[in-house]
Design a protein around this nucleic acid. Structure first.
Length: 172
DNA sequence: GCTGAGATTCTT
DNA sequence: AGAATCTCAGCA
């Protein structure tokens, strides 16, 4: 029989390079204010890892914006890009080590900006918990998922070393 | 108070 | 392949 469990803190409090590929195939669940549920599998994510990673916002150090990434895994990091698109990220790893996973694609929705648009996710989600919020969480299942890796998108400014990291994970 | 860069998206 | 679009973070 198939068991479905909610991913808890222990899942997220690991290095982002472990968490990111592990997220592939997991179900992202959104409970809207009217009680309706939206559930779709995660098919694409990207890892952003530490102050050294020039593609990571935390490469600018600890600021009001990046503070959230220094929290222990399980926090939700949402920010606005291009003045119009909200990006959904999940903080991973131990406290004081800035990391996050960008949720880039779901089975039913391609593109990070479209996901948040469809799921009605905006700035108020920043800092909430992906474990406890009751509005957004992840579910495990017994299925195994395979993935391939690729370079991250939109980070050409990060320099040869970091822009070439194979830190994008895509379900096959 | 400014300034400008930006984990995108949609159109041509 | 290129423009649209505009907020807010980071400084001063």
């Amino acid at each position: 029989m198939k068991t479905v469990t909610k991913l808890d803190h222990s899942f997220f409090q690991r290095d982002v390079l472990e968490v990111a590929p592990d997220l592939i195939g997991k179900f992202l669940v959104r409970k809207f204010d009217d009680g309706k549920l939206f559930r779709s599998r995660v098919i694409e994510v990207e890892a952003y890892r530490g102050e050294d990673d020039l593609a990571c916002h935390a490469s600018k150090g600890r600021t009001a914006r990046t503070e959230i990434m220094y929290r222990a895994g399980g926090a939700i990091y949402v920010y606005l890009i291009y003045g119009m698109y909200w990006m959904l990220n999940l903080v991973t790893g131990e406290e004081n080590i800035p990391q996050a996973v960008l949720v880039r694609g779901l089975e039913d929705i391609s593109g990070p900006g479209r996901i948040t648009s469809r799921l009605n996710i905006e700035g108020s989600f920043n800092g909430q918990s992906i474990v406890d919020s009751g509005k957004l969480w992840l579910e495990n299942n017994d299925e195994k998922s395979e993935f391939v890796t690729a370079t991250r998108i939109g980070v050409d400014y990060a320099g040869e070393l970091w822009k070439n990291k194979q830190w994008r994970f895509i379900m096959v």
